[in-house]
Nucleic acid binder design. Structure first.
Length: 572
RNA sequence: GCGCCUGUAGUGAAGGGGUUAUCACAAGAGGUUUCCAACCUCUUGUCCCGGGUUCGAAUCCCGGCGGGCGCACCA
């Protein structure tokens, strides 16, 4: 089948030149898994490095690294196991698929607690009909588990585990370490890049829906009473924002980040700041700003952990695609981990502006009287005494215990005590603002937005106008002819470039010079150094700029210096 | 997961129950050439996998795997 679309030409290029290709093709391939080839792997590494550098400019952000294999208990607490174990029922006549517990709503108090067999029995007992075609013939309910399950330990004592569906849980696990590292002072954040896994029902669209994918996430822990904000005027561009259509600001807006926050489109100052930071990052790595928009989640599409979420979407050959989610996860994760683990290390400390001193009066039980009088219930009496809101003036009085009984307290059972307490602050569970980036999707859009199909002297011509920081090579070395000493000089220059840290080069000496320029333009090498006859005489070479094919001649020493500084463009 | 379409060198395609599967581009070696895919010679390399039908299957049939689109799903 002939497919002449721009997307298929771009995909062919990516495969042909070694950017990305299907994995395990020797054995037929596996859908949802891709390889980055020699050029793609370079780009991926550079994008991730740019991402780390970008977010590391935020004060109090550090990098961590945690395992991809995650014990089940962690993901039970985070809610992923529950969310992932939904049963699905499929209609036999129209093939509509629905969550089984949703079908059973109204027929059972807590349908989500039933197992698959009970669900199926209930479905047939109640003669539940398909919402789309109205018939009642269902296939057996099946669990839809989108996590890859595995076991830690080979033999009987092994524990159930899953490949992580997000890197975030690793950062929550590190919270006590981070809190200590930052000396208990919020806000602070941890970032992590790495693989995440989702056993998608039907991966599609090349690099867009993968089963194993590269994520980059930042968990920024804040005091909800004092959320950090930034001067948003640093970013002047206007961007498209689509607030929740059910919310008060519905309708597409084109606003600056400052305007978005001032007008309440984005309600949270830290979220607004992160939207702007996200925009800045994407444009820095070569995403076209006109193809960026932010869309707020509807209440119904919100993840189980989020109170508010903005997606950053990019427009490309696949339409608008979500590439970043900026979620206010509130205290959901830390609180849930606190409850499930019983740890008390997942708190933040909020110091009061001035200490609160409190004079408190209470009745202290006299053990030698209370003990013998109430025996095994003495502890309940002590507890009830310390919980008394007001101290009775008249004895004896009746004291209600937590077991529902009351006892009579006489004067000699207690001593009236006064205590001065000073409260300097309080513990609370920090909130988390999380920007989560899908690196593969971003890479696809970098390639898409920079893939230029041009015409040069009547012929098709392709340039990949990658940013210098993202390009797979910084420079290509081209001897005009591979002889007469030009070959030797090219090798000498290559050796000197190889000694510059962080600069990647490639030499190409085969076929005509025009063809070699075309080859390097096609894979996005920003600069070409050409050694010609004049080079042999005076030590100068030409530098060619990929994007407009302009050439300047300069001596090799200054070119190498500019290359190491990343300022070759000042030559033009 | 369902339905429709689909799978031939690195890429894009043509063909097709019968000797050795075709073309372009790309790639490698050599030649030529004083800066933008030129040209000449030579070279490498392909029918997704498994089963069936058949004297014979890359071709027909079935299944699997992969890809595209639609439906469903999508933290």
């Amino acid at each position: 089948m002939t497919d002449n679309s721009r997307m298929s030409r771009l995909s062919s290029l990516l495969r042909r030149r070694g950017f990305v290709m299907p994995s395990f093709e020797l054995y037929g391939g596996v859908s949802g898994l891709i390889d980055y080839g020699p050029l793609g792997a370079r780009i991926k590494r550079k994008v991730i490095q740019s991402w780390i550098d970008h977010w590391s400019t935020v004060p109090n952000v550090v990098e961590v690294d945690s395992p991809t294999i995650t014990p089940e208990s962690v993901l039970v607490a985070s809610g992923h196991v529950g969310e992932f174990n939904d049963k699905m029922s499929e209609c036999q006549s129209c093939e509509g698929t629905f969550r089984t517990d949703h079908l059973l709503e109204g027929f059972h108090n807590s349908p989500e607690t039933l197992d698959a067999e009970e669900m199926d029995r209930l479905i047939s007992e109640k003669n539940i009909k398909c919402p789309s075609c109205g018939l009642a013939s269902w296939k057996a309910a099946r669990p839809m588990n989108l996590m890859f399950k595995t076991r830690i330990g080979a033999m009987g004592g092994s524990r159930t585990a899953y490949m992580r569906p997000e890197t975030a849980q690793g950062m929550f696990m590190s919270y006590p370490t981070l809190n200590r590292h930052f000396r208990q002072r919020l806000p602070f954040g941890a970032l992590q890049t790495g693989k995440g896994y989702r056993n998608e029902i039907s991966p599609r669209q090349g690099m867009i829906r993968l089963r194993e994918f590269n994520m980059a996430e930042l968990e920024y822990f804040i005091d909800p009473n004092d959320p950090p904000s930034m001067n948003l005027n640093r970013w002047t561009q206007k961007v498209m924002m689509i607030p929740d259509t059910e919310g008060p600001n519905s309708g597409e807006k084109t606003v600056s980040f400052q305007e978005a926050f001032d007008s309440g489109i984005v309600g949270h100052p830290t979220v607004a700041w992160f939207l702007a930071m996200t925009f800045e990052f994407l444009t820095k790595v070569g995403i076209e700003s006109s193809k960026i928009r932010f869309r707020q989640h509807e209440g119904t599409e919100m993840a189980h952990y989020a109170a508010d979420c903005w997606d950053c979407e990019l427009n490309g050959e696949h339409g608008w695609v979500e590439v970043v989610g900026i979620a206010n996860r509130t205290c959901h994760d830390l609180q849930s981990h606190e409850e499930h683990s019983g740890s008390n290390l997942l708190k933040g400390w909020r110091k009061y502006e001035s200490p609160i001193s409190e004079k408190r009066e209470y009745l202290s039980p006299v053990g030698s009287v209370v003990g013998p009088t109430f025996r095994e219930r003495a502890a309940l009496v002590s507890e009830a005494l310390s919980n008394l809101a007001e101290i009775p003036e008249i004895f004896p009085f009746s004291l209600a215990l937590s077991d529902g009984m009351s006892v009579e307290i006489t004067e000699e059972m207690v001593i009236r005590t006064e205590e001065d307490s000073v409260l300097n602050g309080e513990y609370f569970t920090p909130h988390v603002i999380e920007p989560a980036f899908g690196i593969d999707r971003i890479i696809w859009h970098i390639l898409d937005h920079n893939y230029q199909e041009l015409s040069k002297e009547g012929e098709d011509y392709t340039i990949l106008s990658l940013e210098q920081d993202i390009a797979p090579y910084d420079v290509v070395i081209l001897p005009l002819f591979d002889k007469d000493g030009m070959d030797i000089m090219a090798d000498e220059i290559s050796d000197r470039i190889a000694a510059i840290p962080g600069i990647l080069w490639v030499k190409d000496a085969s076929r005509s010079i025009g063809r070699r320029y075309a080859r390097s333009d096609e894979i996005g090498i920003p600069w070409a150094i050409t050694v010609d006859h004049q080079s042999l005489e005076d030590g100068t070479v030409t530098v060619r700029r990929r994007d407009d094919q302009a050439q300047v001649r300069s001596d090799i020493d200054s070119i190498l210096e500019l290359l190491s500084l990343g300022t070759v463009s000042t030559l033009f």
